[in-house]
Design a protein around this nucleic acid. Structure first.
Length: 362
DNA sequence: AAATCCGACAACCGCATCGGA
DNA sequence: TTCCGATGCGGTTGTCGGATT
């Protein structure tokens, strides 16, 4: 085994050496791609198909490595790449799948058609990890995951419901027998700003946006849930004491008191408002999770909806009722959890893109 | 108006794995 | 079985543009 490893290392070294030699012979370009390069790459792939990237790099006239060509194609030029901000459905799916699989970006990306592993990774690092940093917890810690599950995920579900029913009413509960594909395909596209079909976004080579951002609008401006608040009473979705409960419950339950360090290094804070403020940032700062225009569905309404939506989904958001979902557990690779994230995921798929439908296990 | 900060994301790098010779 | 080229994956860095001071 170690012999094989050594051989592998030698092979890689030799390969790297050849790469270096090649790089010296042909002045390889680095950095941002130009329109001409993109055209060259797309034309070559149109004629010869994907794959054989090193050959492509040599024969296409591009002064790039095969790796670079492959990355450019897969992450940017491929026609089915979906651009723009992640929808709440996609965000929810990412959270759910990451809780199961960790940093398996490519695996997660397989469940988000049109999204690349790079995009998902960037989302995680810039949005999710940022919030974890603010909370001074490890983004992979159980306490953070559970805070996400019982605070962030419900918010996303709320937002998804708002997106699908701009008139302020919750969508009718979806049952397992419901023909999702039929209904979802006829629904209106999500009313996100940049998520809308921007012709240029799917044809970057023709858009002339080289060396500039594709979509300058921040994610926080992409929601369209403003109409929901009118019809629903603006009751708080979670009280401060509930947030405190999240922190205490999971910190204690998992013995993660050390990585929940809201008071600047001296252990768990004893100030409810500080913890609540920190957790509040999960949903209200830059995460596109805040209630639509300050108005939200009531806990009871949303809970009713989710319970009706999820088959047997009686433990989603039970924290609001103070009852733990004892039926939980077996939640993935990270050990037991009282939260039925599989059901949250089902709801996400049912509400979202038909391609995200339940596939018999993820 | 200029300087600085920061978020977003494209791109690069190193390593692992696969598959054919 | 070993070698080796190709490809895939995840971590990290660089760059740009908007926001803030």
């Amino acid at each position: 085994m170690s012999q094989r490893k050594g051989a592998m290392a030698a092979a890689v070294t030799a390969s790297k050496h050849r790469e270096d030699q090649e790089a010296m012979m042909v002045e390889l370009r680095r950095g941002p791609w130009t329109l001409e390069e993109d055209n060259l790459l797309m034309n070559y792939i149109a004629c010869h198909g994907e794959g054989r990237w090193n050959l492509l790099a040599r024969c296409s006239g591009l002064k790039r490595t095969g790796k670079s060509c492959r990355l450019r194609w897969l992450n940017y030029l491929k026609p089915d790449i979906k651009r723009g901000n992640l929808t709440p459905e996609e965000q929810l799916l990412i959270l759910e799948l990451h809780s199961k699989w960790g940093n398996r970006w490519s695996r997660i990306a397989q469940h988000l058609p049109g999204r690349t592993d790079n995009e998902i990774k960037n989302y995680w690092r810039t949005r999710v990890q940022k919030q974890a940093r603010q909370l001074r917890v490890d983004a992979n810690s159980a306490v953070f995951r559970d805070a996400v599950r019982c605070y962030w995920m419900p918010r996303l579900l709320e937002k998804m419901a708002a997106h699908h029913h701009g008139d302020g009413e919750l969508p009718p509960p979806l049952h397992p027998s419901h023909n999702i594909a039929g209904t979802a395909s006829s629904r209106s596209p999500p009313a996100h700003g940049s998520q809308q079909e921007d012709p240029s976004s799917s044809a970057p080579a023709a858009s002339g946006h080289y060396l500039q951002q594709v979509d300058p609008s921040p994610s926080t401006s992409t929601t369209s849930g403003s109409t929901t608040s009118a019809a629903l009473p603006p009751v708080p979705c979670f009280s401060e004491s509930e947030l405190r409960w999240v922190v205490d419950q999971y910190g204690a339950a998992y013995g993660y008191t050390d990585d929940l360090d809201l008071d600047g290094g001296a252990g768990v804070v004893d100030d409810d408002s500080a913890a609540a403020a920190a957790l509040d940032s999960l949903g209200l700062d830059g995460l596109d999770l805040g209630p639509a225009d300050g108005g939200v569905y009531s806990d009871a309404t949303l809970l009713d909806y989710l319970n009706a939506t999820c088959a047997g989904g009686t433990t989603v958001m039970t924290m609001m009722g103070g009852v733990h979902g004892a039926a939980g557990g077996g939640d993935g690779d990270y050990g037991p959890s009282p939260w039925r994230t599989d059901e949250l995921g089902q709801t996400a798929r049912k509400l979202g893109d038909p391609q995200h439908q339940w596939r018999g296990g993820i």
